[in-house]
Design a binder for these strands. Structure first.
Length: 788
DNA sequence: GGCGGGTGTGTGATCCGATC
DNA sequence: GATCGGATCACACACCCGCC
């Protein structure tokens, strides 16, 4: 297979560079890229992309700037760095590479056609530089200098300083999107260059598509768990253990694997690819392609057991699922519990038992605990079977159990009781509730959080307490109860009462703490899913126990022995319901579009519309690049008030691109484009937003504020014609639908396993609203009782 | 919540040449 | 020789985002 010659490649780079307009650059690129692919094969095309989009390429990250390149060049020329150092500004990569190429030119040999490089050789030389000691880079460069013309040398320097794009004036994201349509999306998801440039197109409507898995429901009322399970799971059902790992969808296409997380993210690059190679041989020969629903777990080979999420290893370390490398004892393992696609045939509409049958018979040739195995399940039909199974699971320190209807179909991304899939976790059992005392309020950036303490000793005369846990107020308390609680607490003390002990020597700097007067301490019943390394898992404020005194709270010893309590917990009977625990209310109906329109901040734009003019950025999607938290929040706030939809990524949840980007930093154009990794957006510096805020209208951005103008959106597009009518009716209908979707999506993002129920009404949607935070601060400051 | 991990920012140490 | 400013680098820190 003929290799692409480096000079040919360089000619293309030069041609792209010469064309100033993006569409012309694109034409040249597509033409040449197509040729390389066709004539030279995928390898050359991929090398070309790796060369061009070098800023995203770790393989060629040499860590060299103007200073170091001066030293390297000086060694090649056998002179001092001083002699070769540039005497002008250093920000322009084009000038830098031209300068050094010119400088090195005199020592190169005459063009000898036999010595001409291929692209692959040139690229490999750069990769070699990355992998050898810095002092030896000059020897590789000396060799290259002899083999390259000045023009070629310029691009060698460009890739050495990692800015070929800057010299071409053709950004990496353009290069990638022109080479492969969804390349940038792959990059965002995987940060993996090889995958991004993957040329082979595979898949259909299901295979290789990033869909979300079907999710499990939770019984709404802990005392009525059985009637609910019975209603939706039918007379006979399946039971499985709930494994504590990461829920992933595994796609297999031939020898290739793809791993999609619960939120539809492609984590193939994040999980050690070792897992794919280790499980490859476990499949039956007849399995060409399949999609499996599975749990990815950490497995200790030495102890022959699964290590639970966030559980410490023997050596005291904890490892992320995405970084299983160092410890040889811990490996990733796959537990498969469903198959939804096999050899081109979608199985989504087959009943669960049939899918299980296929899973057992047709997928795996062999199984191993440390690689891949099928989850065991058993059939059952009575409450007692479920209770026993649950109790046994708790004793074995499992996360919980799962109950599944036999004929349940696979609905992608759905979580609905009617699907007949239930998870039963410790929080369902009243045995594991804790009564703790609210002794203070922390003002964290996320909002107020209540500090909870346990009683030190059983002795009634000993009134010492120790803080064991903080829970955000919104985790369980309705707005009404939150207000009531704040009112109840009244003045907060700046110093801890003498009978209260803090576990941490000094609380975090960013955390403000106000202590509640011991006279006003109240008891909260806490519901959790267990304890992990001394910390409660998924804790929420379940009840305000105003029938209990602080001295009746649980003891520190109970808290310390909590793991034991979990292991012995049982599912309750309906008759176990205590007098104070009222039945859960039916879940509040989904918010109507109207109420969303009334509440959602995007709609607030009405308040600041000027005369008949609608906000020009109303409904526009804007990406605010994260800087300092406060700054970013402020920008988001302002933009939202103008009706813009603000995103933390250049690509929104539905895959569409935003219209505009706001950057909080301004270190020049190269910085903005390179750091932000966007090339199709106009980037504005944040002072523009603040000017708009001051002016109470969208003002035209000036030259300094426009860091980059490369998107389609122009200032003129934002201007609303003078005679525009107020868009209240038209705008609201259109926009509220968008908001509706956004909110639904946002809610789906949050899986709080232990959602409180009963008389607290339901938790405020999304928990907190910003003014809640301010309420408290104002309250504290009023009396001057709270000072930092 | 709580953890791991990635990224951006601010800061201080250090080097080095330019300048007084 | 003292001082200054630019460049570079390491480090701490805050923030963001993924998973549970």
């Amino acid at each position: 297979m003929p290799y692409l010659m480096f000079y040919e490649f360089v000619n293309t780079l030069e041609e792209i560079k010469r064309n100033e307009r993006l569409d012309l650059k694109k034409i040249v690129f597509k033409r040449e890229f197509g040729k390389w692919k066709e004539k030279n094969g995928e390898d050359d095309a991929i090398t070309a992309l790796k060369f061009m989009a070098c800023s995203r390429n770790e393989e060629v990250k040499l860590g060299i700037g103007t200073e170091k390149i001066s030293h390297v060049a000086a060694r090649v020329m056998k002179t001092t760095p001083d002699q070769v150092r540039m005497k002008f500004g250093t920000s322009d990569s084009d000038k830098i590479s031209t300068h050094f190429a010119k400088l090195l030119q005199p020592i190169r040999s005459k063009n000898d056609p036999s010595e001409q490089l291929t692209l692959k050789e040139a690229y490999d030389a750069i990769v070699e530089m990355k992998n050898i000691p810095y002092e030896k880079i000059s020897t590789v460069l000396s060799k290259l200098v002899k083999q390259c013309s000045e023009k070629e040398l310029k691009w060698i320097i460009a890739i050495m300083i990692r800015d070929v794009e800057g010299v071409m004036k053709f950004s990496a994201s353009n290069i990638i999107s022109f080479a492969k349509e969804d390349g940038n999306q792959t990059w965002i998801n995987t940060r993996d260059l090889n995958q991004m440039f993957e040329m082979v197109e595979i898949g259909d409507d299901h295979l290789w598509q990033n869909f979300k898995p079907m999710l499990l429901s939770r019984p709404k009322d802990r005392y009525k768990w059985w009637s609910e399970v019975e209603k939706h799971c039918g007379k006979d059902f399946l039971m499985e253990l709930k494994y504590d790992g990461e829920h992933v969808i595994m796609h297999k296409a031939g020898e290739r694997f793809k791993w999609i997380t619960r939120n539809g993210m492609d984590f193939s690059a994040n999980y050690n690819m070792n897992i794919s190679t280790r499980i490859r041989d476990f499949f039956k020969q007849t399995v060409d392609s399949c999609i499996l629903d599975c749990e990815l777990v950490k497995y200790s080979i030495k102890n022959k057991k699964i290590i639970r999420h966030q559980e410490k290893n023997d050596d005291g370390s904890t490892q992320s699922f995405r970084k299983i490398t160092g410890n040889q004892d811990v490996v990733l393992a796959v537990i498969v519990f469903d198959v939804v696609y096999l050899n081109g045939e979608p199985l989504f509409e087959k009943p669960l038992v049939e899918r299980k049958e296929i899973l057992t018979r047709k997928i795996l040739e062999r199984q191993a605990d440390d690689a891949i195995r099928i989850a065991t399940w058993k059939t059952a039909s009575t409450k007692h079977e479920v209770k026993d199974y649950f109790h046994k699971a708790m004793q074995d320190d499992e996360e919980g159990i799962v109950v599944k209807r036999r004929d349940s179909l696979y609905l992608k991304g759905s979580r609905d009781s009617r699907n007949g899939l239930y998870k039963l976790k410790p929080s369902l059992s009243p045995d594991v509730d804790l009564d703790l005392v609210a002794v203070g309020i922390c003002q964290k950036k996320e909002g107020p959080s209540v500090m909870l303490a346990a009683k030190n000793k059983e002795d009634p005369t000993d009134v010492n307490f120790t803080v064991v846990k903080g829970i955000p107020l919104h985790m369980g308390l309705s707005r009404m109860l939150r207000d009531k609680f704040k009112q109840h607490c009244g003045k907060l003390l700046t110093k801890s009462p003498p009978n209260l002990f803090l576990r941490k020597a000094s609380p975090s700097k960013t955390m403000k703490i106000g202590f509640i007067d011991p006279e006003k301490w109240v008891v909260f019943q806490i519901r959790t899913n267990g304890i992990n390394e001394g910390k409660l898992v998924n804790a929420v404020l379940y009840k305000w126990r105003d029938d209990k005194e602080a001295v009746e709270a649980d003891l520190l010893a109970v808290y310390r022995n909590y793991a034991k309590k979990i292991r012995s917990c049982k599912l309750p009977e309906e008759d176990d319901r205590p007098y104070w625990d009222k039945p859960a209310r039916a879940k509040r109906e989904a918010l109507s579009k109207r109420s969303i329109a009334e509440n959602h901040s995007c709609i607030e734009v009405k308040k600041i519309r000027l005369g008949s003019m609608a906000s020009p950025i109303y409904g526009r999607k804007i990406y605010v690049r994260h800087g300092g938290g406060e700054m970013r929040n402020k920008l988001v706030d302002i933009l939202s008030k103008f009706g813009a939809l603000v995103f933390a990524e250049p690509t929104t949840n539905d895959g569409s691109r935003v219209d505009l980007m706001i950057s909080t930093v301004n270190s020049g154009k190269a910085f903005a484009a390179e750091k932000a990794k966007v090339s199709d957006l106009t980037i504005l510096h944040h002072p523009w937003v603040e000017r708009c805020h001051k002016a109470q209208t969208i003002v035209q951005w000036d030259e300094e504020e426009e860091l980059l103008q490369q998107g389609d959106l122009k200032w003129t597009d934002l201007k609303v014609p003078e005679d525009a009518t107020c868009a209240s009716t038209k705008g609201d209908t259109g926009q509220s639908t968008q908001n509706d979707q956004d909110m639904e999506e946002a809610e789906e993002d949050v899986e709080d396993d232990v959602v409180p129920e009963s008389d607290h009404e339901s938790v405020d949607e999304k928990g907190r609203d910003s003014d809640d935070e301010f309420d408290i601060i104002e309250h504290w400051n009023e009396d001057g009782t709270y000072e930092e």
